[in-house]
Amino acid sequence: MRNRIKTSLVVLVLALSVGADAADRIADPSTDRLVVHFGKPTYVQLHRYKKMFEKQPFSDAILMYYDNGIYKIISSGEEYYGVFVIDGRFDDERYTIHYASLPSTDWSNATAYHVLTFDSSKKHFEQSAVVPIDGRVPQQFGVFETSENMIANPIFVHWENSKHFMPWSVELK
């Protein structure tokens, strides 16, 4: 039974629908699909890790945020979607974001939970994580840059083409 539930939840369709009607059905039992609409683009962040999880040693990561709590993360070795809740606001001096990834191959087809605390005055973040494979991951940290997200549909943005979309003042690794 557990495998059947896991299998039916693995299929996820992310569809572009800026300003989607809240009455839209998000679950389609006839296809075992969950349709999640992107909200309006809000912010995009570059994270440059100074201390990383050795099993995912990608020093740069880009996160694209949407006003309904959806995010996409890309790096030179990972790409997945998830949901987030922010404690504070992106323009606060300090704020915390809680992330739950959607099932992805990056996390053995399961979810992962991350908490990042940002200090805008120092452009510094700290990260803690719990992942299904390894449990609690040692704390990570780095620096970040935040800009306006101009990408309404992130499905076609991948690490290889990200430099065409991003406004960074630093070279990506």
Rank of each mutant, 00 (worst) to 15 (best):
E126H: 13
A129W: 04
I86M: 15
K122C: 00
P154S: 03
E126N: 13
N161K: 05
P154W: 03
T96F: 10
Q140Y: 03
D134Q: 01
P132Y: 08
V131D: 04
H98P: 00
F141Y: 12
F125P: 00
I86A: 10
R136C: 03
D106M: 12
D87G: 05
V143S: 14
F141M: 10
F165G: 03
I151G: 08
E148S: 12
E145A: 15
V137H: 02
W159L: 01
P138R: 05
D119L: 00
V131P: 05
M166L: 15
E126L: 08
S147W: 11
T111W: 07
V143W: 06
N149W: 01
D106R: 04
D119K: 07
W159I: 02
P154F: 02
G142T: 04
L102Y: 15
W107Y: 14
H114F: 15
R136W: 03
W159E: 03
K122I: 04
S120E: 05
I133W: 06
P154E: 02
W159K: 01
P154V: 00
F144R: 06
F118I: 05
V130N: 07
T111R: 15
E160Q: 11
Y99A: 02
Q140T: 10
E160C: 02
N153G: 05
H114G: 02
V130S: 10
F156A: 10
P103M: 11
H98I: 06
K122N: 09
F90P: 06
T117E: 14
F90E: 13
T105R: 13
M150E: 11
I155V: 12
A100R: 13
L102A: 06
H114I: 08
D92N: 07
I151A: 07
I133R: 10
V137C: 00
H114P: 00
W159C: 01
L102G: 03
F90I: 01
P132A: 11
P138K: 04
S108K: 12
R136K: 14
A152H: 08
D87Q: 13
F156C: 02
N109A: 06
K163L: 02
F165W: 06
E126W: 11
D119W: 03
P154M: 00
F156N: 14
V115T: 15
T105A: 08
I151E: 04
Q139D: 14
V115S: 00
G142Q: 05
H158L: 11
D106V: 14
K122E: 09
E93A: 13
H98N: 13
F141I: 01
Y95M: 09
G88M: 06
M150D: 10
E148Y: 06
D87E: 14
F165Q: 04
N161F: 07
D87S: 14
D91L: 05
S104Y: 08
V131Q: 12
A100I: 13
S108V: 12
I151Q: 07
S120P: 00
V130L: 12
I155K: 13
M166Q: 04
M150Q: 10
G135S: 01
R94G: 02
N161E: 04
N109F: 11
V137N: 04
H98T: 03
N161A: 05
F156T: 09
N149S: 08
